[in-house]
Each structure stands twice: as C-alpha cells, then as structure tokens.
Design a protein around this nucleic acid. Structure first.
Lengths: 235, 235, 235, 235
DNA sequence: AATGAATGAGAGTTCATTCAT
DNA sequence: CATGAATGAACTCTCATTCAT
C-alpha cells in the first residue's frame, strides 16, 4: 500500500478540477441512468437524456460506456452487485442467532435497497429481461446468484447451528425472497396497477415483519403445510 | 341434408372462406398480439410481427385496429375485462359460505387467468404502464377497478353475513390481490429473475391456498397484528 | 336509327332497376369525386371516400374507373371538356356584335362553371398539375386548348368583322382568361389565404364586368399601353 | 497574419468545417425545402428528398426541425414573414407621395418576392391550406395579416394626406393584393394550366403597372364604378 | 477528454389497387 | 356486377451509435 506509484496517489490527494470531473463522470452517468431506467425502463430510456441529466453530452456517455447495455451493467454493479462483498462480510461478522440475523438482514436490505430507487431495477429486469438476453444473463450472474447464495448461507447457518430444521433449500430461499421482490414491485407500480391510495395502505416494514414471522415459524419441524411441497418434511 | 351438394344457401351455415376469415381476423390478430405482448412487452412488439403471426400482412392489422394501442385494448377486453360480467354473475349465484366463495374464486381465477398467457398482461402493465398513459388509464378502468370492486363485494358479503369482522376494506382487498399478482409475475419471469429451476419449486396452487389461509385467519376479530395498521381493529 | 338492334333499345326504354343503377354509377361516382377533389385536392382525396359518398364500395369504383387518374379524367370530361361542343355551337349560332358575344359568354361561363364547384378543378390543376403529369397533359388537351381556341375564335371574329383591331392573339386570349382564372381561385380559397370577410368584398359579377370593359377598351387601335408588349400595336 | 498557419485561435474567424455546417444547416435545409415545396407542394414533398437535396441524411433534417410542418414554418419565416419589419421600417422612412410609395412597394415586392421562388409559397397555401389547418393558421397570422395591415397603412396614409378619397378599406386592400396574387400563381403554373408559350406573353412588370394605374385611378372621389360596391362612395 | 452533428435502420400508419368470392 | 378483405410500398419520425473536430 505504501509503495504505490506516486503519480496516481498525487492525483488522488489533490486532483485537478478537470481530473476530478473525469473520475466522477462514470458515477454521475450511472446515477443519472439509474434514475431514468427506474422511471421509464431500459428500452424507453434514451441515451441522450441520461447524458443530459448527468450534465454531459451524448458523445461523452459513449466515451465511458460502450453501449447502453454496458451502462446498465455499470448501474447494476454500482448499486447492487458491488454490495455483496459487504453483505458477505457482515454475514461472517454477525454472531447472534440466525433468526435475528435474518431479521437484521431484512431490515438492512430494506433500508439500503428495497426502500430505494434501486428496487426499480428489479422491476425493470422482471419486465424487460426477456428482450435483452445479455442483460438477463449478466443480472443472473451478478445479482440473482449471489443473492440466492447469501440467503442460502444464512439458512444453512441456522440448520448447522440447530436453529432450523433441515430445509429444502431451493424452496426456502425462495420463501425469503418472494416478499422482498413483491415489495419492490409494489413500490414502482404507481398508477399503472393499483389505485395508489390502496397500494399505500400496505406498510412495507410491517409486511416484511409479518412475512418473516411466517417464514421463521416454518423453519422448524412440522407436519406438511400448504407452504410445503408434498413429501418435504419442512420448508 | 348432410349429403347434399353445397348450395349457395349453405353459405349461412358454412360461410365462404372469404367471409369466415373476416369474422375470424380480429380474434386471430388479438390472439397473436396476446402472445407477442406477453412474450416481449407492448413497446417491443412490432405491429408487423403480430400481423405475420396471424398470417396476414401489416396493412391488414390496421384494417381491424386503428392503432397498436387499440389492438392492446382489444386484447385486454377480449381476455380480461370481458369476463367481469361472468364473475359478477357467479358472485350473485353463489350460496355457500364466504370463505368457501373466496377459495372457489381463487381457484377459478387460477384456472381461467392466472395459469394462462393472460397473466402476462398484468406483468406487462406493471412494467410499461408508466410509458403509455392512455393504456394505463384504460387498464385502470377496465380491469383494476372492476377487480377491486368484485373482491370488495366478496369481503363485504362476509362482513354482512357475520362471517368476517368489520374490515378496513382497502387494505383487505389488497391482501387478497397481492398473492395473485405475485404469482402472475413469477410465471412470466423466466431467466430474467430467477433460476427457473428454483422458481418452479413454488407450487402455485399451494402458494395460493396458504396465502388464502393466512388471509382468512386475519378476517376475524383479533388485536392488532403486524398485518394490521396501527389502530385498525382488523385486517 | 330505326333499325337498331332491339335488345339494347329495350333496355334503354324500360331499364330494370338494377340496370338503371348500373348506368348511373359512373355519373354518381364522378359527381362524388368532383365534390371531394374540389374539397381536398386530387392527391388528398381517398378513393374509398369517393366510393362511400357515391354509396358503393371501393371495389366498384375501380370497376368503372381503372385508376384514380381515370376517375379524375372522367370528372373533367363530364363537367368541362364535354361542354365545348355546346360552346362551339353557341358560337356558331350567335349573331350579335362580338363585344356582346364576349359579354354573353362571360356571363354564361360564370353561371355554368365559374360560380360552381367545377371552378375548383381549375384551382386543383393549378396546384397539383405538376405532380401528375399525365393529368396535366390530359387537362391541357381537353380543357386548356379548346378554351384557348374558343376565345381565339371569338376574338378573331371581332377582328374579321372589323370590330376589333388586329390582335396579338396569344396575349389577347390570355387577357380574357386571366380574370376568369383569378375568380375561380378566389372562390376556393377559404381561410387559407384571405380573411374570408375581406375576400367576400369582391363582387364577382362586377369584377368580371369591369375587367371585360378594360379588355374591350383595349381591343381597338391605340398607341402602346402598359398592357401591350413593346412593339405590339395593340392588345 | 495572413500567411500564418491556421491556429486554434483562428477558429473564431474561420470556424471549423464542423461548426460552420451546423450554423449553415437550418438555412440549407430551409432552402432545399423551399425549392421542393414550390416544385411539388407541401404534401407531395418527402422529407427525405429535402434532406438529400441539402446534402444530408433524413435523420439530420429532424435534428433541426421537429416535423415537416415546422420545416414549412421555418421556410415561411425565413422568406416571408421575417421581412415585414423591414417593410414596415421602409414605410416609416418613405417621404414621397403615397401613389409613389405604392408604385415603389410594388416594384420592390416584385423584385424581392414576386419574381422569386418564394411566390410559389403563396400558390402552395392556396392549394393545400385546407388540408393543413395548422399551417393555414400560421400563414394567416404570419403572412396574410401583416401584409393586409401594411397595405392598409399605406392606403390610410394616402387618405390622411388627402391624396386618396375615403376608402372602403377591406375592398381597397384586396384590390391591391389581387394582381400580386394572380401573378404569383401564373409564375408557377407551367404546363398545368397554360400553354407556357402563351403565359409568357404577359410581362409581369407591365401587368403590375397597368393594374396599379387602374387602382390609383380609383382612389379619388368618383361616382360608382363597376369596381365599387353599390353605395360605397369610392374604391 | 469532450463534443454534438450526422447517420440509417426501423417503427407505426396510410391508401391505391387487386381479386376471390 | 358488386363487394370489401388483403396487400405492400411509401411516408414521417425516432434514436443508439459513430466520428470529425
């Protein structure tokens, strides 16, 4: 660390105004893109508008991102997949009970992502993924899989520590994910799908808590329930 | 009669090909449009492809529908809003308990619509509604409002017959709707959002049953629960 | 004449209803076409609308006229060029002075054509002729040339009878035609070009009379006037 | 300085090709559009052809003008309505007699506009105005009204200075305008309406002069003439 | 590095004309 | 004869992407 080349670190310490702009550009563009992708979707967002909102010209956008799809990937990396190392670190560091961990994660997730523009990306992928196979694949690898893995690790921890009964993992992961996805959709479905007045009746934090309670209730030895596939001893 | 040569008078019974096509066209086009709208979304579906899939030329499509938006409206009318009169008739005719009615409706809905291409329309509106305000308004009026009304009538019946406790209707309606919407989304989110293998773990019928059970459990006098807003005596 | 074949003449005497329609069709179509051509121009008039206004289907129109251009030609023939034989006959029969003849012709023309939908055809050709060379040629041959010829004959009669001085014919013909054309344009220039209130100030009959008076005043030996090209002894 | 190599600082003086084009484009496009509108009319002129004639691609046209109608408006502004401030300034500055002013204006108008492609716009509006109501309205406001106002001011000046008798303004304005409009039509009616050979017989300058003479003759107290409506004391 | 003018493939839509019935 | 369903070329306008400056 202390032996890094001087030039780069000089710049890092006292960047010229011009330089600072330059370094900031990709982030500013990705931020503008996030806004617009969430607002209009991927296909309906025009590259020029992203650039304008970031205060640069259309050409500059393509200077930093080779295509609209690359821009989208950057948005995902910066806002979602980039966070998994922290999530995983937090997982390692946590030392309470697994039900507490699950509750804690859910709360953090809600604050960091669910209750944020970022949740619009989930909705976007749901709606447009099929039309942009490369993005779908990217999202699978960068978001879906790490997320599933993380949840799986949490659940497995509960099983390993004897807090949870043995689980049909695929199903259990999904049970955790479902209410999160649903909430994200709800948050971005203004006039299109619900009378906003009615949609706003649902208090997200309470909804998450109740769903979590139900899930946790299912994470112990019980006879078959409607939530359980025939034959699976437990969630 | 059955062995007579085809007369002109048979025309009424077996319309000439020319005429039969004419009557069939709108339906064929709407069917092709449903397929493609569900597959690609509204904006990404090209009019010409709808026509081609219906076996006609681009011009023919516009012979029957003045615009792509009108085509979409026809798809909605034909597949969703047109069915509300039947739903309402069935509501009137039913004479079991209201919990039974709710279960019955859910089952029927799943067979008729949820477990069908039609459910893709819900997803489509969720994703693209904001970009097509006229369609969003149409969908609100033709689908959302009648659906909400129907559910509300069912719940109110339960209250009126003393089966359910007094309800905060807006919230209760939404509680019924939420799992239905979620399922529809799930069904049309192939590679985009979940490892299909995992998504398929969820058995829709069981999911619906379990959600219904939870809802029904909430439909009687109880103290405040996480599902209940502060102060509301019941779901 | 008396020996003509019976079949055709039977039909001519007592045409079946069906037949009568059939014979009337071309005229009805041409009449509808005249209305619409005058109202919207040639290019902007849709074949289907002509058919609808004539109470037949689009296909029927093309049964009687091979193309929109042929339809236009029929309109011209029926309403303009077909009248030249009568004009010429009247020319032969007239036996007053030539100035009187000119006045008489102008008046008749105003009643028969100028003050009529037909005048819209002149405007139409002026505006769209260049875009439809075949129609332009047809109109030249069927309308412009006969009209010029007729006027020329009238003027020549005046010269021959010693009523007019020798004329530079091309120019003189044009002097007669100009106010007629101008009036026709004015009649079909609603809101597009003049405040209708103002345009209506001009009384066509008086305008024609005054122009005629000026022209007639020019039809005798005089020194060069502004209306005369340098060197031409007279109009 | 004149022999120095081109520096960057020369840029302001001799803008780079790239930039010069940008400033020039709208004008080039409007010029090409003027040519084609006059040649073929508004509806029959294809956007792509305008672009091609201006040496750019279809997309470039719409970079500068939001629609074909906006392009037309720009043509009108650039070639006609933009000139009214100069006309009005010249009106203020002129200090000869009003008949002289009228003659002078007519001459200038002929040089600047009548004897120019621009006169084709008048013909175009006459022919197509009804089919493009928004353009008709624009033309009314930007051309017809200012033109009428200007002529009215000239005539009123004559009245105020005692050179002309009191006038029925609406009618008088129109008397001045009529020959101007007629000439413009004539100039753009090649093969469509007249044997070009014949049309060319009319010498525009002489035609204008003669018409002006007639009008001026009418601008003094006289008993009713054919040019005067019954009851109006003067033109 | 940054610009923004330029491109051109394609989208929805229109309409004269054809032809099976 | 009459129909009107069907066609497909043509039109205006959009936008991701390129590239000269």
């Amino acid at each position: 660390m202390s032996f890094s080349k001087p030039h780069r670190s000089d710049k890092a310490l006292v960047p010229a105004r011009h330089e600072r702009r330059k370094d900031a550009r990709p982030g500013e563009l990705a931020a503008a893109a996030l806004d617009l992708f969430v607002e209009k979707g991927f296909a309906a967002t025009r590259a020029e508008e992203v650039a304008r909102r970031a205060g640069v010209s259309k050409g500059t956008l393509f200077l930093y991102f080779n295509s609209k799809e690359e821009l989208f990937k950057a948005v995902v990396r910066e806002n979602i997949s980039g966070g998994f190392s922290q999530w995983n670190a937090e997982f390692e560091a946590f030392d309470g009970s697994t039900p507490d961990m699950l509750r804690h994660c859910m709360t953090l997730w809600w604050q960091r992502q669910g209750n944020t523009k970022v949740s619009g990306i989930t909705k976007l992928m749901l709606g447009e993924g099929k039309n942009f196979p490369e993005l779908a694949l990217f999202y699978q690898q960068e978001v879906i899989q790490p997320a599933h893995l993380l949840i799986r690790r949490i659940l497995q921890r509960g099983v390993d520590r004897g807090e949870f009964a043995p689980l049909n993992m695929k199903y259990a992961v999904f049970a955790v994910l479902a209410p999160m996805i649903f909430l994200q959709l709800l948050m971005h479905s203004d006039t299109a799908c619900y009378d906003p007045a009615e949609a706003s009746e649902l208090v997200p934090e309470e909804y998450l808590a109740s769903q979590l309670q139900i899930i946790l209730a299912g994470l112990c030895l019980r006879p078959a329930s409607p939530l359980t596939k025939k034959g699976t001893p437990c969630l």
